[in-house]
Design a binder for these strands. Structure first.
Length: 778
DNA sequence: GGGGTCACATATGAG
DNA sequence: ATGTGACCCC
């Protein structure tokens, strides 16, 4: 380690790094070298005799954790760094829970449910309870439950909390407490925890088992928390418990960047930190190393509109830089076009590369117009966020096999795949099994294991037994081999890989590629050394545990790819880019209609805008459109109120036609007459590139979906009796054409044939009772 | 089972 | 505009 590492820091940074014992709060403004301070501090602790095993550092994103790990490794070397506990709240707690789960009655290889899994369970319960899912929307119920857990409120407390009950009564949803209770029971029965449980159960574990608390209090003598302004009450209490003995808690945060209240975060945690502990040392990092003076001045003035902040003054030695460019366009499509044009122009003029640009928006749905315009100009880009790879159906299906192999209690996964690929276990069978499992208070899986005992017969029994045998064979592999070996076998035994390979439609091809990508990533997992302390555990269990906690943003972000980045502002927190486009600055969109009802909500939107501005290093564009498509119809929006909060001298409005001023007269339809009476608009419109050149206003036509191979039935086509069909026969189908029966399954009176149609899309499962097949050759 | 049609809701943000 | 869930047919 460079012995002069302290010299590379400014005075404030050094003060923070050098503080070893006792509570410390680092108020770190945007771009003030926060990560550098955190990593250097870890090195400094160790240099002063702290054992690497005793340090815990918690972040919010995998990305932040990875960056911290890498930088600490660079300072310390890999072997020492490996002992540190650095990770996200969720992943670290998942790991600790995995070690202690048995105390809570959970299997150690418990399954982690993502949001979709959780909502699916909730939906099942709502239906079981015969509640109207239009009124009890799974999404809404999920959010209530999530909020409860984040405030450490269990089902009991929820149902007895006066205030909460009042709220549910007002919305006429008195059953949410009951649903919560059943949901918690179901998750427990399934051996599953959702994201919020990783915090909630962690708290319960520490609270109920003093010996566990004691153990970790003494293990983690030094605790560091990144993005402290985004912690929720559950995280807050856990930190408090863990740090209670040594009080060596170092929190780093910026109240101006608190943007996660929807996840239960309370800005109060950081505002109150000084009152939580005795003798809190507060260090403020106020020098910004990232942005130009123009950018920083605009950011500072915007955020000054919020009340009740920790007092600080962010400044920079960087040069003044260009003014912030404000752009108005007519529609969202023109907005996209303008941004793409500007990127092309800036690449030429200022020698930027694609990777220097980021387009930041308020909602994921806004990405579309930018994708189109970038594609049309052949500018490579990548979208972060949105539907994650792991949420794709085929991926979830495949993972469900792996999950079941690890944890047979997981009914959610079991139901997903019990009849995928089709094996003749239909709705009736599943419903029966659910009833038996409830009656005998055993798991769904146990019903399947004892299928004969429960009276399943014939083809159904055969199918169930076959399924059970197959899963057991996976378990046998799992006991001796790594995650990849199991996955390969799953692909083979279930026929999923082959089936997708034979599907030659565009979607089928994409699905096949996704599965291949999944298999590759599992392979990669087993072949690269694990970074976090859990050394070289390449088991299936270890793989599954981390996979659910990955986000799209964590996927192969290779530094070499030269692409424009598109993401939400939330996803951009903690990142920086030479050139930023903050787009869609319109009322109803940013600030969002859903977040302007209270001062707190509006202030959070403003902080979000602040985050957007402060991502930019040297150039910043702010854009908005007069009208945009929403739900297929055009809606008009006024410019965002935030645009009025910026200091004029740092803003270049020449592309905005003065339209940034809101209509102060309150007259209807003022969009075209506003701007405080200036007549710039007509002149400026002509200068707008978007208005000047649009030779091809039509979007490129979408590629026609793969032409379905249309089969014309033979002249004398007449379906034959299903009872006559046997394996090996050649048959004709009205649509799929000629094919050969490969195999048969299912009960005698409900047989399912696997038929390969060389010209009709490969292998198909055909239910003989319904499909009309003609025997061509026996 | 699977493919088609139609109605309908749907979209803040994310581990 | 796009995705889904219910419903119907073969």
């Amino acid at each position: 380690m460079n012995p002069n590492y302290l010299d590379e820091l400014n005075e404030r940074q050094r003060e923070a790094v050098a503080h070893i014992n006792g509570p410390l709060m680092i108020v770190a403004g945007a771009g003030s070298g926060k990560t550098k301070v955190l990593t250097t501090r870890i090195a400094h602790l160790m240099r002063n005799g702290v054992d690497s095993f005793n340090i815990l550092a918690l972040t919010f994103t995998n990305k932040a954790a990875r960056e911290m790990k890498e930088r600490v490794e660079k300072i310390l070397g890999g072997s020492e760094a490996r002992n540190l506990y650095i990770g996200t709240f969720h992943s670290v707690f998942a790991r600790l829970l995995r070690a202690e789960a048995h105390r809570l009655g959970y299997p150690n290889d418990f399954t982690i449910y993502d949001t979709d899994d959780a909502k699916s369970v909730i939906k099942t319960i709502i239906n079981e309870q015969n509640l109207d899912d239009k009124h009890y929307k799974p999404n809404f119920v999920y959010n209530r439950i999530s909020a409860a857990k984040n405030s450490l409120m269990g089902p009991e407390e929820y149902q007895h909390d006066y205030y909460v009950q009042q709220e549910d009564m007002r919305g006429n949803r008195p059953m949410i407490g009951k649903i919560y209770e059943m949901y918690a029971k179901r998750c427990f029965k399934n051996g599953a925890m959702d994201f919020d449980d990783l915090l909630f159960k962690m708290y319960i574990l520490l609270k109920q088992f003093p010996e566990v608390l004691h153990k970790y209090q003494h293990k983690f003598k030094y605790i560091m928390i990144d993005e402290y302004q985004d912690t929720n009450p559950a995280q807050y209490e856990i930190i408090k418990l863990l740090g209670a003995v040594h009080e060596n808690i170092c929190v780093v945060g910026d109240d101006a960047q608190s943007i996660y209240s929807f996840r239960g975060a309370t800005i109060q945690n950081i505002l109150q930190f000084e009152k939580d502990y005795e003798d809190v040392r507060v260090v403020k990092l106020e020098q910004n190393y990232r942005s130009t003076k123009s950018i920083l001045n605009v950011a500072n003035e915007v955020i000054a509109h919020n009340k009740g902040q920790i007092e600080k003054a962010l400044w920079t030695n960087n040069m003044e830089g260009e003014k912030i460019k404000l752009v108005r366009t007519m529609t969202d499509n023109e907005e996209g076009k303008h941004v793409a044009d500007t990127i092309a122009e800036q690449k030429l003029r200022n020698h930027y590369e694609n990777r220097d640009f980021a387009i930041l928006y308020r909602t994921n749905a806004q990405s579309r117009s930018f994708e189109e315009s970038l594609r049309r100009k052949a500018i490579p880009y990548r979208i972060y966020g949105g539907i994650s790879f792991y949420q794709r159906k085929e991926i979830k299906d495949f993972l469900a096999y792996l999950r079941i192999t690890i944890n047979t209690r997981d009914e959610e996964s079991l139901k997903r795949i019990i009849n995928y690929p089709v094996r003749g276990i239909g709705k009736t069978t599943i419903e029966k099994a659910v009833i038996y499992s409830n009656e005998h208070n055993i798991t769904f899986w146990e019903v399947l294991e004892r299928a004969r005992e429960f009276g399943f017969k014939g083809g159904t029994l055969e199918a169930i037994d076959g399924f059970v045998t197959m899963i057991r064979s996976f378990q046998a592999i799992m006991d001796k081999h790594n995650a990849y070996d199991v996955a390969v076998q799953v692909g083979k035994s279930t026929n999923i890989v082959k089936e997708l390979f034979n599907d030659k439609t565009t979607e089928g091809l994409a699905r096949y590629e996704n599965i291949q990508e999944l298999l590759n990533s599992i392979k990669e997992f087993t072949e690269t050394p694990t970074e976090d302390g859990e050394l070289l555990d390449k088991s299936l269990g270890s793989y599954l545990q981390q996979i659910t906690l990955l986000t799209d943003a964590d996927q192969g972000d290779d530094e070499n790819s030269d692409v424009v980045k598109l993401m939400t502002i939330h996803a951009a927190k903690g990142l920086e880019f030479p050139v930023v486009f903050s787009v869609g600055l319109e009322e109803n969109l940013f600030p969002s209609t859903l977040s302007i009802n209270t001062r707190e909500e509006l202030e959070e939107e403003r902080r979000l805008f602040y985050v957007a501005i402060t991502r930019a290093k040297s150039r910043l564009w702010l854009t908005y459109a007069n009208s945009r498509y929403r739900f297929g119809s055009l809606v008009q929006n006024e410019p965002s109120r935030f645009l009025e909060e910026m200091p004029e001298q740092f803003i270049d409005r020449s592309y905005a036609g003065g339209g940034a001023m809101r209509n102060t007269f309150g007259g209807g339809g003022g969009l075209w007459n506003n701007g405080g009476g200036n007549n710039m608009f007509d002149r400026m419109q002509k200068k707008t590139p978007a208005a000047a050149a649009s030779p091809a206003a039509r979007p490129a036509p979408k590629p026609a979906s793969a032409p379905a191979s249309t089969h014309v039935p033979s002249p004398g086509f007449a379906p034959d009796d299903p009872a006559l069909m046997e394996t090996g026969m050649e048959v004709e189908h009205q649509k799929f054409g000629f094919g050969t029966i490969l195999s048969m399954e299912g009960a005698p009176n409900n047989r399912i044939a696997t038929v390969v149609f060389p010209k009709g899309g490969g292998e198909k499962k055909i239910m003989l009772n319904y499909a009309r097949l003609m025997i061509v050759k026996k």
